[in-house]
Write a protein that binds this DNA or RNA. Sequence first.
DNA 1: AGAATATGCAACCCGACGGTTGCGTATCGT
DNA 2: ACGATACGCAACCGTCGGGTTGCATATTCT
Lengths: 113, 113
Amino acid sequence: MSRNLTASLRKGAPVFAALGDETRLRILSKLSGGGPLSITQITEGEDVTRQAITKHLGVLADAGLVRDVRQGRERRWELDAAPLDVARSCLDLVAQRWEQRLERLKSLVETEP
Amino acid sequence: MSRNLTASLRKGAPVFAALGDETRLRILSKLSGGGPLSITQITEGEDVTRQAITKHLGVLADAGLVRDVRQGRERRWELDAAPLDVARSCLDLVAQRWEQRLERLKSLVETEP
DNA sequence: AGAATATGCAACCCGACGGTTGCGTATCGT
DNA sequence: ACGATACGCAACCGTCGGGTTGCATATTCT
């Protein structure tokens, strides 16, 4: 049970690390909105270089959050939402235990006159 | 709506960044389990220095994930689950849009003979 | 073929991060 | 009062992350 938590946390860390950058979150946002986008398309409107975006995509890909599909001379990227669920369940576990603890504390206080 | 997304992402990033470290996740795990713990208590069992733990606690505190209560010569730390909800809703927004997109794509394919 | 477009690769810069060590200060226990 | 305990502060270090620039390669278009 607590082992489950620890394991979940270890899996969650890399995903969170990948999510812990505003630029990368914006990239995910773009990908969640439209279809698969090419690197230059993703770079459009961003205030960093295409190379920077490429690196970010690499990080996201390592975390499994995104995958690429080569198509001629361009390389289109699309979202893979699976790790998002991993991250969410990770958050749930911590939050859940925290709630439980508060609950226990609450009932403990309430029984005390 | 899309503005809502961007704002949510900007709020989420620091939280994710704070969560993107295994040691910090373990700290949160410890805090979610028991009551408020002192720094030395948190350090116990960890393979890094007390100072390192102190720094991690600082990062977590900056993200609002944790707060401290001074108590005599010791400083006890407890979880604040609010940012976890922020992070979760952030994930939800991205995942939700992604699901919607898949849904639209699916129905589009299905109507196409 | 030749220009334009889309991307890859590698070197380099710099600041932030994770971590340690050394020492000082405050508080508790006896 | 005095030792032990809990913590803070500051300097220092190696590494990694985000970013850029320059140049090479592949594909498309006309």
